[in-house]
Simulated scan of single mutants.
Amino acid sequence: MPDAQRPAHAPQTHPALPRQKIGVLLANLGTPDNYDYWSMRRYLNEFLSDRRVIDYAPWKWQPLLQTVILTKRPFSSGANYKLIWNHEAGESPLMTITKAQTAKIAQAVSQRFGDQVQVDFCMRYGNPATKAKVREMVAQGCSRILFFPLYPQYAGATTATANDAFFRALMAEKWQPASRTVPAYFDHPAYIDALAQSVERAYAALDQRPDLLVCSYHGMPERYLTEGDPYHCQCQKTTRLLKERLGWQSGDLATTFQSKFGPEEWLKPYTVEEVARLAKAGTKRIAVIAPAFSADCIETLEEINGEIRESFEHAGGESFTYIPCLNDDDAHVAALTQVIAENLQGWVG
Score class of each variant (00 low, 15 high):
Val119Pro: 09
Asn80Phe: 01
Phe261Asp: 06
Leu26Gln: 03
Gly141Tyr: 03
Lys21Asp: 14
Arg6Val: 09
Glu244Ile: 00
Leu246Arg: 07
Ala178Arg: 14
Ile192Pro: 01
Ala10Phe: 10
Ala202Phe: 00
Tyr43Trp: 09
Gln12His: 12
Thr271Asn: 07
Cys215Leu: 12
Tyr151Trp: 06
Asp120Leu: 01
His218Tyr: 11
Thr161Gly: 10
Asp33Pro: 00
Pro210Arg: 01
Leu212Ser: 05
Leu225Cys: 06
Asp33Lys: 11
Pro291Ala: 06
Leu195Glu: 05
Glu274Asn: 13
Phe75Leu: 12
Leu64Trp: 07
Phe166Tyr: 07
Tyr154Leu: 09
Ile308Val: 15
Gln12Ile: 11
Pro291Lys: 04
Ala79Phe: 03
Gly78Ile: 04
Gln153Ile: 10
Lys99Cys: 01
Gln197Asp: 14
Ile323Met: 08
Ala279Pro: 00
Ser250Val: 03
Gly23Glu: 08
Phe148Asn: 07
Pro7Trp: 02
Lys237Thr: 12
Ala10Val: 05
Val53Thr: 09
Ser49Asn: 10
Leu65Arg: 02
Ile286Glu: 02
Phe293Asp: 13
Lys284Asn: 05
Val275Cys: 12
Thr159Asn: 09
Glu173Gly: 04
Thr337Ala: 15
Lys280Thr: 10
Ala331Asp: 15
Ala106Lys: 12
Ala196Phe: 02
Gln249Thr: 12
Pro177Cys: 08
Val348Trp: 12
His232Gly: 10
Leu195Lys: 03
Leu48Glu: 12
Leu48Tyr: 04
Val53Trp: 05
Arg168Gly: 00
Cys297Gln: 09
Cys215Asp: 01
Ser311His: 06
Asp164Phe: 05
Leu212Val: 02
Ser216Arg: 10
Gly346His: 11
Ile105Met: 06
Cys142Trp: 08
